[in-house]
């Protein structure tokens, strides 16, 4: 249902300003200037890139352990780290300004998302709790996507410095996914504190992650005219609507499940991205008198 609604919004947003559907524009040719006529049709293309920080929102938590009577659950829940691990993204910007200050933007990019959580388990002597064995797990997930965001951008100023706001949706195609696990332990039951079972694993989880992700996106930014181009900076926030875990594969045995005792939760991915961009007007002009900037 969410997917259908998102598709509908995208189609409506993209087709609504289409000049091919507009009536009565065929014989209207006016010179286009920066501060003049509002009926401007201009394509912009450019490159963009930056860093991003992700947060996994847990919809349902899972564990390989099921505790029997007398056990305390306490510390044995995953603790997610929010917006701490940087990822990178780079790609293109394709905009169609159909009304002065209002444009539709496609921002295809290749993006790397990272997030992590910690977990620990302990066992102790029932008669002397200071004698214990603790095992700690730090699990980082790295997801690589081809992103296809689609936004509508509104510029708040007509000057060279153009702050703007934008909103829309995105769809992403998974290209790679791995989990890195760092396992450490402390043995406090053998006479002194000693480190045990230091292990590092790197396991591919592409088959355990859904191929497609989608959500809504919104952000703010600005551009500044420099010569025949515009340079810009923007901050976007993505809110994921899709549970990314491939449920059918959740408990299929591998090194993570029976080795590192890690079972993935149902989660969606939120992301804060900071981007720089450089865009230039495509010479797709509608009039020989057009002055792009």
């Amino acid at each position: 249902m969410k997917k259908t609604a998102l598709v509908g919004v995208m189609i409506l947003a993209f087709l609504w300003p289409s000049p091919s559907l507009a009536q009565g524009n065929q014989n209207k040719r006016k010179p286009k200037t920066v501060t003049g006529n509002s009926d401007i049709n201009q394509w912009w293309i450019g490159v963009r890139g930056g860093i991003n920080f992700s947060n996994a929102t847990v919809q349902k938590s899972y564990s390989i352990y099921s505790y029997v009577q007398d056990a305390t659950i306490g510390d044995n829940e995953k603790k997610y780290n929010s917006f701490t691990l940087p990822g990178l993204h780079f790609g293109f910007s394709v905009s169609y300004e159909f009304i002065r200050g209002l444009s539709i933007n496609v921002l295809p990019s290749y993006t790397s998302y990272r997030f992590a959580y910690d977990n620990s388990f302990r066992w102790y002597d029932s008669e002397a709790q200071s004698k214990r064995v603790t095992t700690n797990y730090t699990i980082e997930t790295r997801l690589q996507y081809i992103d296809l965001p689609l936004t509508i951008k509104y510029e708040l100023s007509r000057s060279s410095f153009k702050p703007y706001i934008q909103a829309g949706g995105y769809y992403s195609l998974l290209t790679d996914a791995i989990k890195k696990v760092n396992i450490t332990g402390i043995d406090q039951a053998s006479g002194s504190d000693s480190e045990i079972n230091v292990t590092e694993l790197s396991v591919g989880i592409e088959d355990r992650t859904k191929k497609g992700n989608y959500g809504i996106i919104g952000g703010v930014g600005f551009t500044y005219n420099m010569g025949n181009a515009r340079v810009g900076f923007e901050i976007n926030y993505r809110y994921g609507l899709q549970n990314l875990d491939h449920g059918e594969m959740k408990y299929v045995d591998n090194q993570l499940v029976t080795g590192a005792y890690d079972v993935p939760d149902d989660y969606s991915l939120n992301n804060l991205e900071l981007s720089m961009q450089v865009i230039i007007p495509l010479k797709f002009i509608t009039s020989k008198d057009y002055v792009p900037l």
Partner: peptide
């Protein structure tokens, strides 16, 4: 994105843990 969501009783791995070593 037509992958299935998790069906709890069809597939699972459980270890019945007791914290007393």
């Amino acid at each position: 994105g037509n992958e299935e969501d998790f069906i709890p009783d069809s597939s699972f791995i459980k270890i019945y843990n007791d914290e007393f070593f």
